[in-house]
């Protein structure tokens, strides 16, 4: 019990520290690749502190849903972060929720965020909610198929078990089923974290926005919580990708030395994935909204192929 609490505490601190950093790294890398100077990698922390010191403006039309949503978004993303192996194979709360709980807890956060979008009464909010729920609905089957492929290989939906299984066969990612599942999950990651070509995180007050439209009315500490929640969610999905497919360097125990090594390798892997995301974002143009289902259908087909190839090979 105490051991679990200590582990949770350590991982919580790690989550809160790394999530804004990764967001900052992606922003900086993107700016550099587009020959802009861009903010430095620590800008997200400054944003957070600044937002925390600001006052809030709450729309007259909003109800209590608007006020509880930031907390729920933050709490679901953070709880999910404790269920996923970051630097060691056994995640603190892995026993209490596997990959299905992860997906559905994130859905809980999204459910409330979409309600908050409608709650403001502005048409931007409704527009964002509608699009967010639509895209996430069609991304879900692709995500599940890819996850199932990995889970069936590991014989478990528990993320620690999945990571353990991956560690024991560390070259497994070269198998076609794993590569296909990775590709499918990568597309879902792009869609779920609101990146080009599906959504654009840098956009504001444009008709193409999705996530930003939902949170348009938020300000001050509420916005800080929502932003932090979104960064943690992004980190969780990236971690899911790097640690289930490339489990190198995951520490098998919670010693300081093991965790230190694990952390270094983990950050390295995240950096690699971040570079990949930046490449995709920079080399693609944003899609029309109604082209997005085609992209996600491709992800679904990739997931289905991944599943079939576990059966064939």
């Amino acid at each position: 019990m105490t051991e679990m609490l200590v582990k949770s505490g350590v991982q919580l601190v790690l989550l809160l520290l790394v999530a804004p950093l990764i967001s900052g790294i992606v922003k900086t890398l993107k700016a550099r690749l587009q020959t802009r100077r861009g903010p430095d990698v620590f800008q997200p922390y400054r944003d957070l502190f600044k937002l925390m010191r600001k006052g809030m403006v709450i729309p007259d039309t909003a109800s209590w849903i608007f006020s509880v949503t930031p907390y729920i978004v933050f709490a679901t993303a953070t709880l999910v972060g404790l269920m996923i192996p970051m630097t060691a194979t056994d995640a603190p709360l892995s026993l209490f929720g596997g990959v299905l709980a992860v997906v559905y807890l994130l859905a809980l956060g999204r459910f409330f965020l979409a309600l908050a979008g409608l709650d403001t009464g502005s048409s931007f909010g409704g527009l964002g909610s509608s699009r967010e729920m639509t895209i996430s609905a069609i991304a879900e089957p692709a995500m599940m198929l890819a996850i199932f492929t990995v889970a069936l290989g590991a014989n478990s939906t528990n993320l620690s078990e999945m990571a353990q299984a991956a560690v024991s066969q560390s070259w497994k990612f070269l198998e076609p089923s794993q590569m296909l599942a990775f590709a499918a999950l990568f597309v879902v990651l792009i869609a779920e974290t609101g990146r080009i070509p599906v959504d654009n995180q840098a956009t504001h007050l444009e008709l193409t926005m999705i996530h930003e439209a939902m949170i348009l009315e938020y300000s001050g500490p509420y916005l800080a919580l929502i932003e932090l929640g979104a960064w943690i969610k992004q980190l969780v999905l990236m971690t899911l990708l790097v640690n289930t497919f490339f489990p190198f360097g995951l520490s098998s125990d919670w010693t300081v030395a093991g965790l230190g090594m694990g952390l270094v390798v983990y950050l390295g892997k995240l950096l690699g994935l971040a570079c990949f995301i930046v490449m995709v974002e920079t080399t693609n143009a944003k899609m029309r909204l109604f082209r997005v289902p085609e992209l996600l259908a491709v992800a679904f087909i990739l997931g289905a192929l991944a599943l079939i190839s576990t059966f064939l090979f």
């Binding site: 039309t61 459910f111 979409a114 639509t134 198929l145």
Partner: peptide, 26 residues
Amino acid sequence: GSMLALTGALAAACFVKAFGITFLAL
């Protein structure tokens, strides 16, 4: 299983609509 996931996500979308349009905003 993936179709169950689709169903669940669509149901969530539908209930955001049902609750949001009926009970929220103006």
